[in-house]
């Protein structure tokens, strides 16, 4: 077993356990902190996959922004009766567990039948990936449309979210 494999196994196990904590913790702040752990594990995986740009993006976007927003929302909506006591799950918990296990085994079985399932990474120079990505994002035969659509999507999200969350006059009193 190579050191890289050890690092991978450690990361994968830690982040999967953290993910299980995310969906089972009653205390939502704890859940959010475990979510941060999982997301960090995914960032480590991106490094192992030689995509360091996505690894830092993962940390900047998910840990730096999305997780913070989640914690903010948890604190803005914290209800005394809601998080410390009471059951975190709804009535369908058994069904949910069953379907999660089903989806997992389905995915593994389906992918297991694929010829390249246990492929080994080809030796390749990945250092130019960021420049290549930037070029592709702004090229007419690349993803320039997706680039602009992403911008529109985020603009829409910003406008929509502010519209939804901004208190109307009637609510203020």
């Amino acid at each position: 077993m190579t050191p890289m494999q050890l690092i991978f196994i450690f990361t994968a196990v830690a982040s999967t356990v953290a993910a299980i904590m995310v969906v089972t913790r009653r205390n939502m702040v704890h859940a959010a902190l475990f979510l941060v752990m999982t997301l960090f594990g995914v960032a480590v995986a991106f490094v192992l996959l030689e995509a360091p740009f996505l690894a830092v993006v993962q940390v900047v976007v998910y840990i730096g922004a999305i997780a913070i927003l989640m914690i903010f929302a948890v604190m803005l909506t914290r209800n005394v009766t809601d998080d410390e006591s009471g059951h975190p799950f709804n009535a369908n918990v058994r069904l949910a567990l069953l379907s999660a296990v089903f989806v997992f085994s389905l995915l593994v079985v389906t992918l297991g039948g694929w010829a390249q399932f246990s492929a080994i990474a080809p030796f390749a120079n990945t250092s130019g990936a960021v420049a290549q990505l930037g070029e592709a994002l702004a090229a007419a035969d690349g993803y320039v449309l997706a680039f602009e659509v992403a911008s529109m999507l985020l603009l829409g999200a910003l406008v929509g979210a502010i519209f939804v969350v901004w208190p109307r006059q009637a609510e203020n009193d």
């Binding site: 993910a19 969906v23 995914v42 799950f89 918990v93 949910a96 379907s99 997992f104 992918l111």
Partner: peptide, 13 residues
């Protein structure tokens, strides 16, 4: 796949 399944469980339950 494991992460996906855990997430799915969270969404459903």
């Amino acid at each position: 796949a494991a992460l996906f399944a855990v997430g799915l469980f969270g969404v459903l339950a």
